[in-house]
């Protein structure tokens, strides 16, 4: 007599028809009398055609609907908007991050650049910043010298 553990260990062999007739009968008899193992077998049977089948998968009949290459074709209406594709979401998030970084950099330089330019001008390493910023208020090197 097989116990529950032994029975569940033999599910795969049963599925592949590898059990000896007496083992097969013992397993079937156990499943008839044990609701938990019977439930476990029916759960197992849902994935077994792919995971445990030794045979080639049966061919699809021409009349049957084709399996969509794009998984979106099977989506329910509630999630079929096409806007949550992980890849696309990744691209969108990358683009948003890049825009944010660019905006931050622009803001940072717009604040710090005049000071840096003035320093450079004082040290004589850069042309006056007036051309760069177009402001009459920016002192020229002549102003600073006088």
């Amino acid at each position: 007599m097989m116990n529950c553990f032994e029975v569940r260990q033999e599910f795969a062999a049963f599925w592949r028809r590898e059990l000896a007739p007496e083992q097969r009968s013992a397993l079937v008899a156990h499943l008839k009398g044990c609701a938990k193992c019977d439930h476990a077998f029916r759960t197992f049977a849902m994935s077994a055609p792919v995971l445990h089948s030794a045979a080639e998968p049966p061919q699809r009949a021409a009349a049957e609907r084709p399996v969509a290459k794009d998984s979106r074709a099977r989506r329910p209406a509630t999630v079929a908007r096409g806007d949550y594709e992980p890849r696309r979401r990744g691209y969108a998030m990358s683009a948003a991050a890049m825009i944010l970084v660019a905006a931050s950099l622009a803001a940072y330089f717009s604040v710090t650049a005049p000071v840096g330019s003035l320093t450079d001008e004082l040290s004589g390493t850069q042309e006056p910043a007036v051309q760069l910023f177009g402001s009459d208020l920016t002192p020229t090197s002549e102003d600073l010298a006088s």
Binding site: M46, P49, V50, A55, P57, V67
Partner: peptide, 13 residues
């Protein structure tokens, strides 16, 4: 039945 039914295979996938 699983050996003959394509849908068993498709559902498992």
């Amino acid at each position: 039945a699983a050996e003959e039914r394509r849908e068993a295979h498709d559902l498992a996938h």
